[in-house]
Design a protein around this nucleic acid. Structure first.
Lengths: 213, 213
DNA sequence: GTTTCATTGACAATAATTTAACACAAGTTG
DNA sequence: CAACTTGTGTTAAATTATTGTCAATGAAAC
């Protein structure tokens, strides 16, 4: 029954969490919105407003308790759950994501990897074997998989996404350079790397344009 | 002398380019904002407004010429330049980005890779050898490097960024999970993968919250 | 040519987001 | 324990982004 929180706010939460984590590591006990605003280079107002979307975590005259706020934001982001995930596409990108241990710390458990390339099948990332695509549907059904990570070229992505959805996947982290068309109940988070690179390219040119003499 | 274009607009340009590229491949000659709006699931108004930030590329009663619009957006994004880039961090992620051939098609030329791990030094990605970090400063200076891609853990990233900037790098594509503090003339584009994953996590939990019975 | 039709570019209206302002509860100090 | 300070939570204002509308204009039809 939460009222809708804008994606702009959601996008900022992980960054708050990151800074709070660093403060925790430094054994900082409390912090005010204005101190945090200096650290993070945002307005104190925005911090307060963002947090108040989810309830009051601070105390007048005291500020925010770092540990408490950290754990509340974790909860908001759903990081207290465990999620089982699989990776489709065992190329370098798939392997990089599969090998990234910090995901496990956050409760994202790699259960399987899949690829259509016979040379990759049987190879391992950590203790997880790469399986052939034929085994994908059965694997999803019998291993309680929550998230599928798509690290394959765009040509195959649309079809694979269809298979994923048919077999009950509810969330896709999509690195394929194509917009997936899935039912509304399936959550998709796109990471379009070349879009990001083009943005950088724009900012380089635009800076040069505005600063040439 | 361009007036400032908002990052929201810039972020949408690569997506326009992608759809226009697909239309080009299908030999579509012209398209109206309303046709494109259906394809892309945005409003026609937004398309026209976005494009008009940069000038009038269409024609009343005709629409937009696909080839022309494609090339104009390419120019806006600075994709008619060539950029030389290097990758710092030759792990799986670095190798994945280094091996991604589409970047080269867009004018991003991989000139070198660097890592501090002796086991990786000398290995190759395409025809580019991984070099030790000691050679980084001299290499940047003598090879006209525009962009550095940071695919190393956050611990080393801040220091490496400092070295990059000192040696003349003007743009950083940052995959390290930390905010870099660089002079304003250095363009930084962040790709924080775990932030993206947390956003997905939020959307899963939030969907479940709102739809449980 | 002239008329009709399609569709842009411009702008006004609306919506969303961010920043500022401030009342007041909670802490602190002498 | 009274006066003072801090800093949240909240409401209001400002800014920014998105959408809807329409006159102007060029393309197509005849």
């Amino acid at each position: 029954m939460d009222k809708d929180i804008s994606q702009a706010v959601i996008s900022r939460l992980p960054r708050y969490l990151r800074y709070l984590g660093e403060l925790k590591d430094k054994n900082v006990e409390r912090i005010s919105s204005s101190e945090l605003s200096v650290l993070m280079k945002v307005t104190a107002s925005q911090i307060r407003q963002d947090l108040n979307n989810f309830g009051g975590f601070g105390q007048q005259g005291y500020g925010y308790n770092v540990d408490y706020l950290y754990s509340e934001i974790s909860k908001i982001l759903g990081l207290e759950h465990q999620y089982n995930f699989i990776i489709i596409g065992a190329g370098n990108l798939g392997k990089a994501l599969g090998g990234y241990l910090n995901f496990e710390k956050r409760g994202f458990i790699l259960k399987g990897m899949f690829d259509k390339n016979p040379d990759l099948i049987g190879t391992e990332v950590r203790d997880v074997k790469v399986m052939p695509m034929e085994e994908l549907p059965a694997f999803i059904r019998s291993n309680d998989i929550d998230i599928a990570v798509l690290t394959i070229p765009k040509e195959g992505a649309v079809l694979v996404a269809k298979v994923l959805v048919e077999n009950g996947i509810k969330a896709i982290w999509n690195f394929a350079h194509v917009d997936l068309d899935v039912p509304e109940y399936v959550q998709v988070e796109n990471v379009h790397l070349s879009d990001s690179l083009m943005k950088l390219s724009y900012n380089i040119s635009s800076y040069n344009e505005n600063n040439k003499q």
